[in-house]
Structures are given as structure tokens and as C-alpha cells.
């Protein structure tokens, strides 16, 4: 089967000028500007089959939003090809946008001054949604997202969480096969995040809606996406399952040992050797750190148990945020894949 979204060698360049400082600089800028070309997206290639939920992450300014804006037809690619749901997004935008839904976490798609329900009615007309479909979908949105309570409030008076629920519902009103979400959970509290994630999962399950979402919150990815793409400085650095990424970034394991007394602790400390470091957490608690390619976890535990009287063992999971930090500080994939 052909993938629903195909992107190949996609490039977007922006021309910008550098602003000089001070009044004198501003005056000079009036007449002479130093232009330079910035490549925001640099030869990205990927495919997304129908029904998949894909996470798209990267630090600020990495090119995430630019990619989404090209995929949704807002921006024209500088070069490269996009075929999404059978359309070239920019060139066939008016027909294409009928078949997609878009949520921008930072900016509402609804009309600011009118009641939420009026925005929905306008969208119903813009997308030619039949009255029967409209009623059925509104009922469902109300069921999961509890929209009913603020349908008659103007958008500008909603809290961020309420607004985001409305935005997600609005993007799905015409039941598009593809949904793009740009930071859909940004700034939301845990409960609101959970609501949105549950709803997205449900929509994917029931309608097979394909989703591509950017986020800074890896919990979104863990909850929603089996597949993850990482972009930085415009280049696609990783494309695969989250587990694979963790494996690749986690070159070290750590195990914490609690010991019976100080004597035992000293015995364990003596294990320190090439590649195996021991960190003292307290008098009776030590952390062993070792490279994954040199030792297995089982091997280290066997050694420890053989040499000292161990009370308790904890294999420490690296927190997901650490993974993100490593990606964002540029530690990803500089080396070949093991």
C-alpha cells in the first residue's frame, strides 16, 4: 500500500537580514540590508502510512514548525516533493485543506470574538459538513472533551485548556483522515493534557486518523506514538521507535545497591575498575555506572551480589527528559548506529 504522506528531499530556505544595532544601525538598515539565506529544513525524507501516529521533536528553531507548515500547505517548499493524501499541499491547497485538520497549540484557529459554537457553525459551513454529521460529532466531542459547558462563551474568555479542547474538536469537525498538531499540549496542566491525549488516541482508534504531532513533552510521545522523528538544524536525525532512540542514547546503565553495613559498602566500592564507576550516595547506598556495550546488567548484579551483602537492588531508568536533553544538546547520532 502506498503511504499516505510521502516527503522526499524537502527543503525550505528563508531569506532574512541581520539587523544592525542602535539608531545608526537602524538607519543604515533602511537602505542597505545584509541578506542571508537560512535553510530551515534541509533535505528531509520520510513516509507515513495511513493510521500511524508519529511524534516529531527537536529543539526550538530546529525546523519542526516549518515542516508542519509545508505539510499543511501554508508554506511553499523551496525544493523537494510532498504528496499528502494524494495532493501537493501548497499547489492544491484549497482542495487539500478539506482533507486535513490542523491544531496550533500557540495560536487558536477559532474566531476570537464569537462564541465557540458560532465558530463551529462557521466551520460546518466552510467544510460543508452535513447537519446530521455535525450533530453526531458535536455530541461525541461533548462526551469526551466536555465542550458543552463553554460552547456559548467567546473564545477570548476561555482558559488555555478549554481553548485547546475546542481547537482540537474544531480541527476534527470535518472528520479529516490526517491531523497535524503543533505543540497541542503546550502550557496545559496534567489533567488537560490527559484529556487531549485520550481523545486523540480514541480518534485514531475509531477513525484510523493519521497524526503527526510536534511536542516538547516526551510524555505525549510515550502515550501516543510508537514512532518518533527527531529534527535538529533542519536535518532529520532519527526516525524510528522511541525504544530504539532510548537504546541508542543510553550508552550507560546505572544500578543502585543498598547494603547491610559500611563494611559491605566498602567491599562493593572495591569493584570499581575500568569503565565501571562507583558513586557513593550515602553510607549504605552506592550507584554503579557502566557502559552497556561492555557489561550486561545481569553480569554486574552477579558480581555485586558475589562480593558483598546486598539488601536491595534498583535498576535505574533514565528519566525521559534526560533523553530529550541529550538530543537537544546535540549528542544524537554523531556516531554511527551501533
Amino acid at each position: 500500500m502506498k503511504p499516505l504522506i510521502e516527503v522526499s528531499e524537502l527543503v525550505k530556505e528563508f531569506r532574512s537580514f541581520e539587523r544592525a544595532q542602535g539608531v545608526r544601525g537602524a538607519l543604515r538598515d533602511l537602505f542597505f540590508r545584509e541578506h542571508k539565506t537560512i535553510r530551515a529544513v534541509d533535505r528531509i525524507t520520510f513516509e507515513i502510512p495511513a493510521g500511524e501516529m508519529v511524534g516529531y521533536i527537536g529543539p526550538n528553531g530546529a525546523g519542526k514548525s516549518t515542516t508542519i507548515k509545508m505539510l499543511t500547505g501554508i508554506l511553499m517548499p523551496t525544493s523537494g516533493l510532498i504528496r499528502s493524501n494524494g495532493f501537493r499541499p501548497f499547489h492544491e491547497r484549497t482542495r487539500y485543506t478539506r482533507t486535513i485538520g490542523v491544531v496550533f497549540g500557540q495560536r487558536t484557529q477559532l474566531w476570537w470574538d464569537i462564541a465557540v459554537v458560532e465558530s463551529f457553525r462557521l466551520l460546518k459551513n466552510i467544510y460543508n459538513v452535513s447537519a446530521a454529521d455535525y450533530d453526531a460529532r458535536m455530541k461525541r466531542f461533548d462526551g469526551v472533551l466536555e465542550l458543552g459547558r463553554y460552547l456559548n462563551t467567546p473564545v477570548r474568555k476561555l482558559s488555555l485548556g478549554e481553548r485547546m479542547r475546542c481547537d482540537v474538536a474544531a480541527a476534527l469537525l470535518h472528520n479529516p483522515p490526517i491531523l497535524f498538531l503543533d505543540e497541542p499540549t503546550i502550557g496545559l496542566d496534567i489533567v488537560a493534557k490527559d484529556h487531549i491525549r485520550e481523545f486523540l488516541k480514541q480518534v485514531n482508534r475509531e477513525h484510523g486518523t493519521t497524526m503527526l504531532l510536534t511536542t516538547h513533552d516526551l510524555a505525549d510521545i510515550e502515550e501516543l506514538c510508537r514512532r518518533l522523528m527527531v529534527i535538529d538544524k533542519g536535518k532529520l536525525l532519527f526516525d524510528g521507535p522511541l525504544e530504539e532512540l532510548k537504546r541508542r542514547l543510553w550508552r550507560e546503565h546505572t544500578i543502585r545497591f543498598d547494603l547491610k553495613d559500611r563494611e559491605q559498602a566498602l567491599k562493593l566500592e572495591a569493584l570499581a575498575s575500568d569503565g565501571l564507576t562507583v558513586e557513593r550516595l550515602s553510607d549504605l547506598s552506592l550507584r554503579l555506572r557502566f557502559p552497556r556495550d561492555a557489561y550486561t546488567t545481569a553480569e554486574i548484579i552477579r558480581r555485586a551480589v558475589n562480593s558483598a551483602d546486598v539488601l536491595d537492588i534498583a535498576i535505574e531508568e533514565q528519566p525521559i527528559d534526560e533523553v530529550v536533553k541529550q538530543i537537544y544538546s546535540g549528542n544524537l547520532l554523531q556516531e554511527p548506529v551501533p
Binding site: 499543511t72 500547505g73 501554508i74 484549497t94 482542495r95 490542523v102 496550533f104 484557529q109 466552510i126 467544510y127
Partner: peptide
């Protein structure tokens, strides 16, 4: 203008 471009109307 982003929002405008996302709607299936000129």
C-alpha cells in the same frame, strides 16, 4: 495568515 491558508476557501 496561517489560519486563513488552512481553510478550503480562497
Amino acid at each position: 495568515f496561517d489560519r486563513v491558508l488552512l481553510r478550503p476557501v480562497h
